[in-house]
Every structure is written in C-alpha cells, then in structure tokens.
Design a protein around this nucleic acid. Structure first.
Lengths: 185, 185
DNA sequence: AATAATACAAAACAATGTGTTCTGTATAAA
DNA sequence: TTTATACAGAACACATTGTTTTGTATTATT
C-alpha cells in the first residue's frame, strides 16, 4: 500500500476513535472528521463512500484481533457436557481483547449508531457459537438455532454490563459469569 | 383534545407506521411523512420537535397496551422456585399483544433506527424483571442485576427470532421457549 | 348564533450536511 | 529521472432540517 494512503487511513481512523469518545456516532459529521484529521473532503470520499463504511472498516479492524484466537481453533471441537469448560480460555481471550480496546468499545456502545457495530459483533459471535453449541444439552425443546442466538445476546449483555461497570471485574470473573449463565447448576 | 389535533396526530401516526414497513427508519424523512399524511411542515413541528420524538410517541403508545397487564400485577408477587410458572400468563399476554401489532414490530425491528424503540422496550421489560427476579435462584454467583439484564435480552432475542420466523409459533410456544431459557432442566 | 381561540396550510427562508467535480501540487513508485 | 497517483483546496448542486410569516378554516365558548 502507498505510504500516503496508509497515513491518511490512520489519520481518519485515529480521529474517528477520538471523536466517538466525545459524542454519539450519529452526531459525528464527516466534516468533524475532516477538521480533526486534516484530511480533505475529496480524499475522504476517495476511501469511504459513507460514514457507515468507515465505521464498518474500524469495526472489522478491531474484530480481526478480538476473534483471532477463536478463528484459529474453529471447527476442531464440539460441545459436550464438560468440554465446554475447555473453551473458557477462548472466552477469556475475547474479554481480554475488549479490555485492551476499552475506550473504543465504550465509545461505540454508548453511542446510538451502534447497530452496525453490534451486527458485526453478532456475526462473529454467532460463528463462534455455531461451532460449539451444536450439542448443547440444556434448555430442552428450545430450537438449536435460537439457543445459539440466546448465547450470543447473553455474551453481549454481559459485555455491556462490564463496560458500564467500568471493567471492575477481571476478564476471568466476567468469563465465569458467562459460563454460569450458559451452563445451569 | 381538539378534534383537529387528534386528527392530525392520527394521520401522522398512520403514515409513520405505513412508511416504517416500506423503508428503514433512518431513511424516512420528515418530508416523506408530510407527503404521505398531507400534513404541513409547520403543523408537524408544532407537535414533534424531531423524528425521534415521533418514534418515541408511537413507541409509548404501543407499550401502554402491551404492558397493561404486567403493570396491574406489579409488586404483588415475588419470585420463588415454582411460582415463576404462574407468571406464564403475563409473558403470554405480552407475546399476544406483540402479535396483534405484528406489522409495526416487524417494521421497526427490521429497521436500523431501532435503538430508541429497543431502549424503551428494555425499560419496560426491566421493570417487569425487577419485580419478579429478586429471588431467582439459578446462575450461581452472577450478580442479581446482571441476571435481570440477561433475562430481558433473552426475551428480546426470542421475540426477534419469532418475528424473523414470521410468527410461526403460537404465543404459548414462544412463552415456553422463554421459560425454558430462563429456568434450567 | 356570534365571538374568540387556535390548529391548520402554504410558502419562503436560513442553516447545515452530503457527495461530486475540478485544478494544481506533492510524494511515492518505477 | 520519469511516471503515476494520492492529496489539498475550492466550488458546486443537492437534500433535509427547522423556523417564521400570513391568511384561512375549524373548534370551543358564551
């Protein structure tokens, strides 16, 4: 990639993550980003068609790191009664990465234009759930597909709780909450 | 209330619920609403400051009906091991009302400007959970407050599943899923 | 029925933000 | 050194928002 291009993309990303901590996504104008990043209008539109496309770009960049480990281990395991506890390290891994990007997660999730971000998050989490929840033995007659969705939303609501709680708990403790919520007894 | 006022409010509400089934909330302009409802710009702004305020108005109007029964029975019960099954009728009541307003729920939840709607929905559901989940005995060391949030999100994700499934299941079946998701075994 | 109050339509308006297009310049790649 | 291209800066058309004004029609009041 051209060095100039890399530079501007970084400037835009940097300004966006900075602005998302100051105001809601929907209230950030492209003009705000241009002013802060010192990038010209024509340059911005050469890279992104819309503000949403920028958010999606930032989002995917984060998730590449957050889900790196889970993707490696994908499709090597299956859910079984106690085997799930072995996946604890994957869950912890995700929470660790989230904590690393504290401010960004906090900024985006406080915002209203979270839909795009959360949809991408759900996609990633669902792929994770899709691999490991096929033999999930609890919750009786609830359809398997729905069980997976419930697991995903449970993960997200716990994450939001953690964020609103200012990351008071350790990633291990939060992982424990998730596992307790998923596995009865 | 002045008959004229009631008339215009109805026209606006009607056009909004009609448009929300045609396109995403964020893509509906106030001009669209004006064109469809034949209400003038000045009149619209005499009643609503923003489009969000309109959505909130429609939202609260729906939830007045949906949660009517749960509000009546509020603070008369407490959660206990099997007592929860007695609240099944309240849950069913909510799902029944949702099905009555099928199109509106489908339209709004398909959309991206759902945040306002869902936040209000969460508020109502949380108040419900807040009354009945104080002695919820499962999920071990997970904080009570978090348990309530998990219950709320579980409810919502099941509702979304139902909607995407085109209301194939009966309200009773969907209620059963929710109870199965909340109460182990 | 007459009067007062007010909700309304219509139109014009400023203000803001979006997305496009152009020209010339600076910087990287060959 | 030459070629390619990413960039800044500016101007532009366009859509949408929210405000204001004037005159009219409808409702509530007496």
């Amino acid at each position: 990639m051209d060095k100039r291009e890399e530079k501007t993309l970084n400037k835009i990303h940097y300004s966006f993550t900075k602005l998302i901590n100051e105001k809601d996504y929907e209230n950030i104008t492209i003009q705000d980003i241009l002013d802060d990043s010192k990038v010209s209008r024509s340059t911005f539109y050469a890279h992104y068609k819309t503000k949403d496309e920028l958010l999606l770009s930032v989002t995917n960049h984060i998730f590449t790191h957050v889900f790196s480990k889970t993707l490696e281990e994908e499709k090597t395991h299956d859910f079984s009664k106690d085997a799930f506890y072995d996946y604890r390290h994957l869950i912890e891994h995700i929470f660790y990465h989230v904590r690393d990007e504290k401010e960004l997660f906090k900024g985006i999730l406080k915002s209203n234009g979270t839909q795009i971000f959360l949809d991408e998050f759900r996609k990633q989490l669902f792929r994770f759930a899709d691999s490991y929840f096929n033999n999930y033995p609890y919750r009786g007659n609830v359809p398997t597909d729905l069980k997976k969705h419930i697991a995903v939303e449970t993960f997200i609501v716990i994450l939001k709780y953690w964020i609103n709680n200012n990351f008071k708990e350790t990633p291990e403790e939060i992982s424990e909450y998730f596992i307790r919520a998923i596995i009865p007894e």
